[in-house]
Simulated scan of single mutants.
Amino acid sequence: MLSLSSKNVFELLSMNDAIRVIEKTMISVSNDKCVLPLRNVIDVSSSNRLGIMPGVLSLGGLYGVKVLSLFPENPSKGLSSHIGVVILFNPETGAPAAAINADALTAVRTAAATAVATKALSRMESSKLTIIGTGEQAEAHIEAISLVRNITKINIVGREMTRAKDFLNKVGGRFPNINFTAFKNVKDGIKGSDIVCTVTSSKKVILFGEWVTKGTHVNAVGASIPIFQEIDESMVLKSKLFVDYRPSALAQAKEIIDGLNSKAFDSSHILGEIGEVLSDKVKGRLFPSDITLYRSMGIAAQDLACADFVFQKAKKEGYGVFGDIT
């Protein structure tokens, strides 16, 4: 079995490569080519969880599982909040073929998936971006979205102004052609933005629909299980809603679950999966004034496709450490 570290992943998987891989993968997902059970999450303590995401990209072909610890306080210890491994199996023998660092893989693939949706749904001329959150996903999203839109101004919103400013100082040198501004208040931070991304682990709504103006594209990314919620029901109602994978969104996106239960809307409010937009089965943005919303849950297909890209490239270029576990 080949073991690949976070350093290996970052060296082998560029954001541009990840965007191309995710684009192709999401089309396959929407063409029912994949077997994707819902994410299973187990409490391991009062605040920490273990997530298990198995999947099959094609019957008789690539399959594997991501096992991920979700420890929200890890960043204060200098560690990722998402720590785990993606295991790929040999489809001919069933033997484990690769163990790949999931922290790095998740960081890249999540932002790449957002970029794919942003390219498909935001206005072409979009140049102003707001990132709500200052964690590890925030920087990855700046890189990814800057690859699909000509971003010239970015507002960073953090719970504490000092954290927002620290993050701004960290990324400013990496993106010298972008004008950064730090905010503590979300309502002020999204004013004038063409694209808004929520990348937090908030259990309380941080982005309200009444604040979002016409023409905006919103990526709601951070809440992957129903105990978290970043956007409110009005944000869903006033938007043209697209998701990565319907079964996940219907079962695990709290604002969608609550809206369905209250009969504020029905499942047809989800206009399509992003793969359906990419393959022209469903129309995305129709008018410049549309408010579009991409509800990202994160799915195993994204992890497995990016993991396989890394695995195949690692074998060719001699990366990683081989170990026999038989």
Score class of each variant (00 low, 15 high):
T200Y: 04
E23M: 04
T93C: 08
F175S: 00
N40L: 15
K214M: 14
E92S: 15
L121Y: 03
I291T: 12
K128C: 09
V65N: 05
S30N: 01
T118P: 03
L147H: 08
N219G: 09
Q229H: 05
I27Q: 02
G64W: 00
L59T: 14
L250S: 06
R295N: 15
V157S: 03
I274G: 00
V321I: 10
Q252W: 09
C306H: 05
E11S: 03
H269V: 02
G259K: 02
D244H: 07
Q137N: 11
A253V: 08
R174G: 12
D17K: 09
P91W: 07
G192M: 10
E276V: 04
V86P: 02
M235K: 07
C197M: 12
D258W: 08
L57W: 05
E255A: 07
V29C: 02
A305D: 00
N177P: 12
S202T: 10
I291M: 10
L147D: 08
V212C: 13
K281N: 11
I156A: 05
L121S: 03
I19H: 01
M297E: 08
V86D: 02
I190N: 02
T181P: 09
K153A: 08
N177Y: 12
T292E: 05
D43C: 12
I206A: 02
R246E: 13
F167A: 01
I142P: 00
A251V: 06
R174F: 11
K281T: 11
L147P: 08
L147R: 11
S47Q: 13
V321A: 07
H141P: 04
K184E: 15
V67R: 09
R246H: 13
G209F: 01
L129E: 01
V221K: 00
A117F: 00
L105I: 05
A95P: 10
V282C: 01
S45N: 12
N31I: 03
R246N: 13
K184P: 12
L207M: 11
G215C: 06
I274C: 00
S239H: 07
I274V: 04
K240P: 07
A223W: 12
R159S: 07
K77D: 13
D32R: 14
C34M: 07
Y294P: 03
L50H: 04
R285E: 01
A97S: 15
S126W: 07
N16I: 12
A18H: 02
N179M: 14
F311D: 03
R109L: 05
G84Y: 02
L59D: 15
K315Y: 08
K187W: 03
E139S: 04
E139Y: 05
V277G: 00
N155I: 11
Y245E: 10
T114N: 12
S202I: 10
E139A: 06
K184V: 14
Q252H: 11
D308K: 13
R295C: 14
D244M: 09
K263S: 14
T326R: 15
H269M: 06
E230D: 10
N169Y: 13
A120T: 03
N219C: 10
I231Q: 07
E143M: 11
S202L: 10
E125R: 13
A307W: 01
G323T: 15
E92C: 14
L293V: 05
F180R: 04
I190D: 04
P37S: 05
K66L: 03
E125S: 15
